[in-house]
């Protein structure tokens, strides 16, 4: 909880840029770039339809856009991320869904300032990932069509097995099991609202 910082409440929609040097908690909807010097929390009900930059990012909600953390990124259970994830330390907890390129290490946050050049279809094994973030296929094995959203993340993981990517099959299985760990329901797919958000952004640019 951002103690005396900024909270975008459950029913609040922000269309535009959010910048600053303090902490930010998103429980509602932000359709526009977030760039803050403090920590960013995207809560369970939070939806962000743009890139997010902060010191430490904690995601329990949905993000469609690139995540850049100056120090660390934690994708917790329920997180749904479609986009690249870059930070010195990245933790992806069981139950978090990611589709995109993940880069950890000291160069990650810096190189992310460059444009999103990397093709978003390369499985990455996090070198310094915390135990909770044991290497995951990151659902990137399938050439990512953003429109299909993270709902396709699990099918993508299992397709690793069929696709003859034997080396990755253990990872795929691990993540597959993790998603169902403890009999918990897997998080819902990234909500269609984000698709709409993309359209709205596009419309905005046209004007």
């Amino acid at each position: 909880m951002a103690a005396n910082g900024t909270i975008i409440g459950r029913t609040t929609r922000v269309r535009g840029r959010v910048t600053g040097e303090v902490d930010l908690e998103v429980q509602g909807f932000v359709e526009g770039e977030i760039s803050v010097g403090g920590d960013v929390t995207v809560d369970t009900h939070g939806l962000v339809g743009a890139n997010v930059r902060g010191r430490r990012l904690v995601v329990r909600g949905a993000v469609k856009g690139d995540l850049v953390g100056e120090e660390a990124i934690a994708l917790e259970e329920g997180a749904r991320v479609v986009g690249d994830v870059r930070a010195p330390r990245v933790a992806i907890a069981p139950g978090a869904l990611v589709r995109g390129y993940v880069e950890t290490g000291d160069g990650a946050a810096g190189s992310a300032r460059a444009t999103r050049a990397a093709p978003a279809a390369r499985p990455v094994v996090a070198p310094k990932a915390a135990p909770a973030a044991a290497p995951k296929p990151v659902a990137a094995a399938v050439s990512a069509k953003p429109a299909t959203m993270a709902a396709a993340a699990r099918p993508a993981a299992s397709s690793l097995n069929d696709g003859g990517a034997a080396a990755n099959s253990t990872n795929a299985n691990a993540s597959h099991g993790a998603n169902h760990a403890g009999g918990r329901r897997p998080p819902p797919p990234v909500v269609p609202a984000l698709k709409k958000a993309k359209g709205q952004i596009a419309k905005k640019k046209e004007r």
């Binding site: 269309r15 959010v18 910048t19 600053g20 303090v22 930010l24």
Partner: peptide, 24 residues
């Protein structure tokens, strides 16, 4: 439930069904 804290800048449109406090 919605607070735009001091030090935060929002450029764009904010809509909400709740109270909002702007300190930024």
């Amino acid at each position: 439930s919605t607070v735009i804290g001091a030090g935060i800048t929002v450029e764009g449109e904010i809509t909400t069904d709740e109270d909002i406090v702007v300190a930024g």
